[in-house]
Amino acid sequence: MRDVKPEGKRARQRRATRHRIVESALELFVGQGYAATTLEQIAACAGVAVQTVYFHFGNKRTILIEGIGVKVVGDDEQVAMIDRSWAQEALTTTDPAHAVEVWVTGSRSIFARVAPLLWILRDAVGADPDMAREWEINQRQRRTDHRAFAQHLADLGALAAGVSADRAADIIYTLFSPEMYHLLTIQCGWSPADWETWIHRMLTDALFAGPDPASPPTPGASSADEARPA
């Protein structure tokens, strides 16, 4: 096994500076808007010279893209989301109900960190071809990851009759879309916990032969609105 060399002092300082710039920029993007934020403001918030921001990133777009990548996985380690411990747990367990629970909970954590940034990226698609390409890359990666999860459930023989791995991937990709999360948590005012409960129920009902008996009950739901959180 190849030894991994410890990170040197200069590399640690450079990484810390990039992290500070990214976190400062994301705070400004969400707080006052992407278009209104300048590199000078980012530099001031991060406590660095504007030339330092230019040296590390060059422009706001690059900062936003790196920030989204960091928030998706939760840190700046070079480990893809699909290779994270929680994702691997969902992709290796032989218990379909547990796999769904882990996948839903992990996805909720990701959305809690990255949803406002994805909306900034999506809003910029029509005016910026580079942002449009980044959005497409993000969408393709999401679909690839959800397809891997769907295939795992298919391999376990957990999918309902008539639900193929491809159809399951389509369902998961749609339910776990940033648009769905934004619509429910921002426009409809649901809490992230409400979103998690509803997504869990919708996913198990759609993919498995019947409702998952381990599915958490919807707080305050009646027979007329049992699919919607109270």
Rank of each mutant, 00 (worst) to 15 (best):
residue 89 E to I: 00
residue 63 I to T: 01
residue 222 S to E: 13
residue 55 F to L: 13
residue 182 H to L: 04
residue 14 R to V: 14
residue 26 L to A: 10
residue 10 R to F: 02
residue 87 A to S: 14
residue 121 L to P: 01
residue 53 V to E: 01
residue 21 I to P: 01
residue 26 L to R: 11
residue 142 R to V: 05
residue 119 W to C: 08
residue 174 T to E: 06
residue 177 S to N: 06
residue 71 K to P: 09
residue 95 D to R: 12
residue 3 D to M: 07
residue 18 R to T: 14
residue 92 T to D: 13
residue 66 E to P: 08
residue 74 G to H: 09
residue 202 M to E: 06
residue 64 L to E: 03
residue 20 R to F: 06
residue 227 A to F: 15
residue 105 T to S: 13
residue 82 I to E: 14
residue 179 E to T: 11
residue 29 F to I: 03
residue 188 C to H: 12
residue 84 R to I: 02
residue 105 T to N: 12
residue 123 D to Q: 15
residue 109 S to I: 07
residue 114 V to I: 06
residue 179 E to N: 10
residue 91 L to S: 04
residue 215 S to N: 11
residue 169 A to G: 12
residue 158 A to C: 14
residue 63 I to D: 00
residue 146 H to N: 14
residue 136 E to A: 13
residue 217 P to E: 08
residue 34 Y to H: 01
residue 162 G to D: 02
residue 220 G to T: 01
residue 156 L to S: 06
residue 160 A to I: 10
residue 178 P to T: 02
residue 26 L to V: 13
residue 66 E to G: 08
residue 207 L to H: 02
residue 187 Q to T: 07
residue 229 P to L: 05
residue 208 F to D: 09
residue 99 A to N: 02
residue 217 P to F: 06
residue 227 A to T: 09
residue 172 I to T: 06
residue 138 N to T: 03
residue 37 T to N: 01
residue 135 W to F: 10
residue 91 L to E: 02
residue 199 I to M: 08
residue 133 R to P: 01
residue 119 W to N: 10
residue 74 G to W: 05
residue 226 E to L: 13
residue 104 V to D: 00
residue 211 P to T: 06
residue 100 V to F: 04
residue 163 V to G: 01
residue 174 T to M: 06
residue 97 A to G: 15
residue 61 R to V: 11
residue 65 I to P: 09
residue 125 V to I: 13
residue 41 Q to G: 15
residue 119 W to E: 12
residue 191 S to I: 04
residue 141 Q to H: 13
residue 134 E to C: 05
residue 45 C to E: 15
residue 21 I to A: 08
residue 219 P to F: 09
residue 177 S to Q: 00
residue 57 F to S: 06
residue 3 D to P: 00
residue 143 R to V: 05
residue 79 V to R: 15
residue 10 R to S: 12
residue 190 W to P: 04
residue 42 I to K: 00
residue 228 R to C: 09
residue 69 G to M: 09
residue 140 R to P: 05
residue 159 L to V: 03
residue 154 A to M: 11
residue 202 M to Q: 11
residue 103 W to Q: 15
residue 204 T to F: 00
residue 108 R to N: 08
residue 52 T to Q: 03
residue 199 I to C: 10
residue 230 A to Q: 09
residue 33 G to D: 11
residue 113 R to F: 02
residue 28 L to P: 01
residue 107 S to P: 00
residue 217 P to H: 09
residue 84 R to F: 02
residue 131 M to R: 05
residue 226 E to S: 14
